[in-house]
């Protein structure tokens, strides 16, 4: 039973991280219909930025709490800046181009950013500083649920609630929903679509950065390539839940995280990634609208 609960929490933790990344995919897709292939790299840059900031601060002897807060803020700020810039450089000029053009551009961006970090930093795995301490009150259950699992779950929950409020109640949230429904109409009623798209990228990137920070401190090491796999898996989760749907992304991520956790725990860990990819292929073939998505009718 303990093993089951352990796997359950491991799966939820995994799923939470996927959710933080998947939200960026789903929001961008909902608004401009683009699979933002470079989103995994934004997450990787978030992890790298927090690594650099946290390590520098710890070398200069800052207290742990200050390190955590500054690293999180820095990761969010810089990831957002990257997300914003990527959209402006690689996607905005292609808004009216055929559908595949921005996707190819996104793939290019992804490869570019990976190699940019590789060249500017290193190809080695880097040890990530321990930002989350073992809490004393977690002691009795520590063999099943680690403190960092708990922190990830709680943080993700808070972030989700904040995001829901943002989309439901703020002006920019309303503008985002309007743009997602009908871009032309949104322009006509005075929504600045460019700004909405930028905001979407910024929010999505900030979420991914937080995911990057959390997972990096959870696993304890990073390198330039972590974005590719995480990105694909988060995308799988987004599609599983129904791409374009925010609750769908969360649901899909948790389902993917749990299934991965149980499959590797009870069956075999050799084919962990094969499993995720197969799931991706199967969903896209058999139910491309996902669990909570709506089917598209073709317009003639």
């Amino acid at each position: 039973m303990d093993y089951f609960i352990e796997l359950l929490f491991a799966g939820l933790t995994r799923g939470s991280i996927y959710a933080l990344i998947a939200l960026g995919y789903t929001m961008v897709y909902g608004i401009i219909g683009l699979i933002n292939f470079a989103h995994g790299e934004i997450y990787m840059i978030g992890a790298f930025t927090s690594f650099i900031v946290a390590t520098v601060l710890s070398i200069y002897g800052f207290p742990l709490l200050a390190i955590v807060i500054i690293a999180a803020v820095a990761a969010a700020v810089w990831s957002s800046a990257y997300g914003f810039t990527v959209e402006k450089l690689a996607y905005r000029p292609l808004r009216k181009a055929p559908r595949l053009a921005p996707l190819i551009s996104a793939i290019g961006m992804s490869i570019f950013l990976q190699n940019y970090v590789l060249l500017a930093q290193t190809s080695d795995f880097l040890p990530f500083p321990e930002l989350i301490p073992e809490f004393a009150f977690m002691e009795p259950v520590a063999h099943i649920v680690g403190s960092s699992d708990m922190v990830i779950l709680v943080t993700t929950a808070i972030v989700m609630i904040a995001l829901t409020c943002l989309i439901k109640f703020t002006k920019i949230g309303k503008a985002m929903r309007a743009t997602a429904q009908d871009k032309t109409m949104a322009v006509l009623v005075g929504v600045n679509v460019d700004r909405v798209i930028s905001a979407t990228f910024i929010i999505g990137s900030a979420l991914a950065a937080i995911g990057g920070l959390l997972i990096a401190s959870h696993i304890g090491q990073i390198n330039f390539y972590i974005g590719f796999l995480a990105g694909i898996k988060a995308f799988t989760a987004a599609v599983l839940g129904g791409i374009g749907s925010i609750p769908g992304a969360v649901l899909g991520s948790l389902v993917l995280g749990l299934t991965e956790s149980f499959a590797t725990g009870y069956i075999s860990s050799d084919y962990e990634d094969v499993f995720a990819f197969s799931l991706l292929v199967l969903i896209l073939i058999f139910k491309p609208s996902g669990l909570l998505g709506k089917t598209e009718t073709k317009k003639v």
């Binding site: 450089l89 690689a90 000029p93 292609l94 181009a97 053009a101 921005p102 190819i104 551009s105 793939i107 290019g108 961006m109 992804s110 490869i111 570019f112 950013l113 990976q114 190699n115």
Partner: peptide, 9 residues
Amino acid sequence: GAILVVMMV
């Protein structure tokens, strides 16, 4: 990577 982006744009 850059080629893919630049050519598309």
